[in-house]
């Protein structure tokens, strides 16, 4: 077994076992991953039910739940992994982006564990973790890859050229795709979270019954969803008797069309060998189908991580922690959280 060492980094190898901790939004998660690849356990405690009546994630409610859940979730991840405390070689934790109060709970717990176990701490970027989510399920993945990260907080097209080598191809200029789903679902009275609610409703509707606008924004691969959201609301106001299933289907089709069109263009522009999905909205069944169709048509690999790997989890945090530990080494124990941090060191 060869240690892979870089000048800045720490020796990690295929037995290096990392506990990941993720609390950036409304999932309290912990996972044990060996060698950056092998998931020994992954526990996610979702707070969806706590936030449902408020129609969105409430930061103070999320922070309170994280404090209550963090140690039980870590303890369960340890038990399910079958490893002992002494087997943990490092603790990786999401340092941002995310909700500050939520991030602080995971960061505090992770630092305490690193101190108590006397192992390195490694603070990681949540968005970079989403890129590594796909590697966990597709070890044979070929670079360069186009990754579409779509969630309640983010809509990003990222060129993944190799470990630590990223180029942002496009991002949203206003609402994140998941945010648009939540807002439209709330307006239609479909409940929270909006993504699955609209997905379900749309199945019974005709996506071509209502032609909603597709903001293609000719310049580049950026997105805009606020106009679509307004168009949906205006349409329902003007036609109060419109069938909700058709509105949901038409709206979802418009979002998917834009996401797929831009992803396809970006993949071509960068010469990607495949397209990969990540983030909560990547669980949307229509988006998954449409991306696969494009991949088949364009001769690309389509990597669709399982729904549990698309949504926030700590296995992806532990996985990227393994790479970051090797590339940059441990983080000092006085690091803080960075709620508004962007994508990590991009190329070109």
């Amino acid at each position: 077994m060869n240690d892979m060492v870089t000048t800045a980094g720490m020796p990690v190898h295929e037995r290096t076992t990392i506990l990941g901790v993720e609390t950036s939004c409304d999932e309290t998660a912990a996972a044990v991953v060996r060698g950056g690849r092998d998931i020994l356990s992954s526990v996610v405690s979702s707070q969806v039910d706590l936030h449902a009546r408020f129609g969105g994630v409430v930061p103070e409610v999320a922070s309170r739940a994280h404090v209550a859940l963090i140690t039980p979730v870590v303890a369960q991840a340890m038990v399910e992994s079958g490893v002992t405390d002494a087997d943990i070689d490092a603790v990786a934790v999401t340092a941002g982006p995310g909700l500050v109060g939520s991030l602080l709970v995971g960061m505090s717990a992770a630092k305490a564990l690193a101190l108590a176990w006397d192992v390195p701490l490694v603070g990681v970027n949540h968005l970079e973790a989403h890129l590594y989510a796909s590697l966990l399920e597709e070890p044979a993945l070929e670079f360069p890859l186009l990754v579409l990260i779509v969630s309640g907080g983010h809509t990003l097209l990222v060129g993944f050229h190799g470990h630590g080598q990223y180029r942002i191809m496009g991002s949203t200029l206003d609402d994140a795709a998941g945010e648009a789903f939540d807002k439209v679902a709330r307006y239609l009275g479909l409940g929270y979270p909006g993504g699955p609610a609209i997905d379900r409703e749309a199945m019974a509707g005709d996506p071509e019954a209502i032609a909603f606008p597709r903001a293609m924004l000719d310049n580049g691969f950026d997105f805009s969803f606020s106009g679509l959201k307004t168009a949906v609301i205006n349409h329902v106001r003007r036609h109060p008797d419109v069938s909700t299933v058709d509105v949901a289907a038409g709206f979802q089709q418009a979002v998917v069309d834009v996401l797929v069109h831009k992803a396809r263009g970006a993949a071509r522009a960068m010469g990607a060998k495949g397209i990969c999905l990540s983030g909560g909205v990547a669980a949307n069944s229509q988006l998954r189908e449409a991306i696969l169709d494009v991949c088949v048509a364009d001769g690309l690999h389509g990597y669709l991580p399982s729904r549990t790997m698309c949504t926030d989890n700590a296995a992806m945090v532990a996985a990227v922690g393994w790479w970051r530990l090797m590339a940059d080494g441990a983080s000092p124990l006085d690091i803080g959280v960075v709620p508004g941090i962007g994508f990590p060191g991009t190329i070109g």
Partner: peptide, 19 residues
């Protein structure tokens, strides 16, 4: 103050668990 309080409690809980 809620945010500070949670930092201390999350740290304390994790230490108690690990030790």
């Amino acid at each position: 103050l809620f945010t500070g309080l949670r930092v201390g409690i999350a740290t304390a809980k994790a230490l108690a668990m690990a030790l």
